[in-house]
């Protein structure tokens, strides 16, 4: 059985907001390592990989591996019934036909209990090869969200060029073109806002902005984001949390 108590329930609410528009149904794979999820969007262009490590919960107990098949829209609706400061406890027994959720307020004088019906989900688990990326950009997650949203005004795709000087996001469309360049600036006073680049080789890649904008729904989870790129392989966008991560992979657009 699974029992996982999350002191900051808001984290789970934010995680659901970050994935529910990309994927509809997914298995939460529970093991002694923690709770993991891997799922592709319907068009097989993007993939979400989530890990909530066991040490982010207190207590965390999972004596046998369980796959909890969840409709994410339903789960996010139930999670909206939890207060932002509530402690959330997830429970499931080995039959895994319902997920029990308990929300306790901080004064511990209001306890709400919900049960969500689970489903059998046949999910394709993808093997993601270990990749040494040619370029890794670490930057402010809020800045990345702003750039994606701004450039979406011009086009449905963005060209990302990384050199040792900086990273340039460019878009061209019917109404014109636009570009935002962030220079590498490791010395800025505010560490959170620094743009840092690790580069083996310059890269220039094109991606759908619709998906990138969708990924930025994870912005409330982390102040930093990393973009890992190599020529003609999927982009990895990672938001690191205190005890886990949310990773998005996006297949590139390639010239015909």
């Amino acid at each position: 059985m699974l029992e996982a108590r999350l002191q900051t329930g808001a984290l789970l609410k934010k995680v659901l907001e970050a994935i529910k528009e990309l994927i509809t149904d997914a298995n939460f794979d529970c093991s002694d390592n923690g709770i993991a999820l891997q799922a592709m969007d319907n068009s097989h262009v993007a993939l979400v990989a989530l890990l909530l490590r066991h040490d982010g919960f207190e207590p965390y107990r999972c004596d046998r591996s369980l796959a909890l098949g969840v409709n994410l829209v339903s789960l996010s609706k139930v999670l909206r019934c939890a207060g932002n400061d509530d402690i959330i406890t997830l429970k499931a027994d080995d039959t895994a036909d319902v997920l029990s959720l308990t929300f306790e307020n901080t004064d511990n004088d209001r306890i709400s209990e919900y049960e969500l019906k689970l489903m059998d989900i046949d999910s394709e688990h993808l093997g993601i090869p270990d990749t040494t990326y040619e370029a890794v950009v670490q930057m402010s997650s809020a800045e990345f969200a702003r750039i994606c949203k701004d450039l979406q005004v011009l086009s449905d795709s963005v060209q990302i060029d990384v050199t040792k000087e900086g990273v340039k996001f460019g878009a061209k469309g019917e109404l014109g073109s636009g570009a935002v360049t962030l220079k590498q600036n490791g010395n800025v006073d505010k560490e959170e806002e620094a743009t840092l680049i690790e580069l083996q080789q310059n890269v220039s890649l094109n991606f759908s902005l619709k998906y990138l904008v969708n990924f930025t729904k994870a912005t409330p989870l982390a102040s930093r984001v990393s973009l890992s790129m190599s020529s003609e392989v999927p982009l990895l966008v990672e938001y690191k949390m205190e005890a886990g991560y949310i990773r998005y992979y996006l297949a590139p657009k390639i010239g015909e």
Binding site: V45, H125, L126, N206, A251, P252, I254, G255, E256
Partner: peptide, 14 residues
């Protein structure tokens, strides 16, 4: 014109 690739051409079903 750019063509959107599928993830399945990069990642194998495990």
């Amino acid at each position: 014109p750019m063509m959107q690739k599928s993830l399945l051409s990069f990642f194998k079903t495990a």
